[in-house]
Amino acid sequence: MNTTEILVRCEGAARTYGTGATAVVAVHGATCEIRSGDRIAITGPSGSGKSTLLHLLAGLEAPTTGRVTWPGLTGKPAPDTVGVVFQGPSLVPALDVVENTALPLVLSGKQEASARRRALDCLALVAAAHLADKLPEELSGGQAQRVAVARVLAAAPRLILADEPTGQLDRATGRRVVDVLLAAADTLGAGLVVTTHDPRVARRLSRQWSMHDGRLQAGPDAFSPPAPATAQGAAP
């Protein structure tokens, strides 16, 4: 496992919604790198730009200025390379819990029976296997969030981005979900980024970044430009 491989790089990435006097800058020129061994917590108040930054990292939104690249991933981000645990509802209403969890695998061409087995295993990891045949409308907010985590784990991505994954959970269940995310990142050799309001969650990740008014404060180790090429024949 290469724990220093750069999975995603932001270079002055900004995101603005609207134009003119009504324009809102959600993210101001974020510059950072996320590597395969990183365990990063991003803290900050609601409306500080944390979710928008995660969407930029996932390739779900394009930066208005600057750029986001994925040097350690093959091609454009996909469910098997970047997995996102969204803060809001994200389950497909017409599918039951196990079908929702297996969906990324089915879409990638896996056989339905194999995808279902993998989905049930991942649901068990987040203590949600007993919900397998329920529809999203039958779930509490916390239960739906656990299923969303299981769906990401089922796809075995290289980069896991979790937006307030414990926000609707009680303390014990939230602790278990963080345990699962950390263990999955270790097993997969994946990078892990978690946004959170909870300092207890933030302290469980080895690096802490913060956002305020759309500005990322990531510390001096958040970005290291590529080393200059060595002269031909020189020692690396």
Score class of each variant (00 low, 15 high):
V97P: 14
A113V: 12
K110Q: 11
V97A: 03
E112F: 04
V97M: 06
R118F: 05
E112K: 13
L107R: 12
E112G: 00
L95Q: 04
L123G: 08
A124M: 06
V106F: 00
G109S: 09
R118C: 12
T101E: 03
A94T: 15
E99L: 02
L103M: 13
D121L: 10
R116N: 07
N100H: 11
S108T: 08
N100Q: 06
V98K: 13
S108Q: 12
A115Y: 00
A102C: 07
G109C: 11
Q111Y: 05
K110C: 08
R117I: 05
A115R: 01
V106K: 02
P104Q: 11
D96L: 02
A119L: 06
D121V: 14
A115S: 02
G109H: 07
S108R: 14
L103I: 00
D121K: 05
A94W: 13
G109Q: 09
L123D: 05
L103W: 10
A124D: 15
A115P: 02
C122E: 15
V97L: 08
C122F: 03
E112L: 11
L95W: 10
V106G: 01
A102I: 03
V97D: 12
N100M: 03
L105K: 03
D121E: 15
D96F: 03
K110L: 11
P104G: 09
R117Q: 13
V98Y: 09
T101D: 06
G109E: 06
V97C: 13
E112M: 05
L120P: 09
A113E: 12
A115L: 00
A115M: 01
S108N: 10
E99G: 13
A115C: 05
D121C: 01
V98E: 14
R118A: 15
A113R: 12
V106N: 00
K110F: 04
L95A: 04
E99P: 12
C122P: 10
K110H: 12
A115V: 01
S114P: 01
A102W: 04
A124S: 15
A119M: 07
L95H: 12
L107T: 05
T101A: 13
N100Y: 07
K110M: 10
S108P: 00
N100P: 13
A94G: 02
R117T: 14
D121R: 06
A115F: 00
L107D: 04
A115Q: 02
A119T: 03
L105C: 05
L103K: 02
N100A: 02
V106W: 00
A102L: 06
A119Q: 08
S114V: 13
V106T: 07
E99Y: 03
S108W: 01
L107Q: 12
A124N: 12
A113P: 01
L107S: 09
P104A: 09
Q111R: 15
A102N: 08
L95I: 01
R118E: 15
K110V: 07
C122H: 14
L123Q: 04
A124I: 07
R118G: 06
V98P: 05
G109R: 08
T101F: 04
A119F: 04
L107I: 11
C122W: 06
L103E: 04
V106C: 01
V106I: 14
R118L: 12
V98A: 14
D121Q: 13
T101Y: 04
L103H: 08
V106E: 06
K110Y: 02
R118Q: 15
E99I: 02
R117K: 10
A102K: 06
A124E: 15
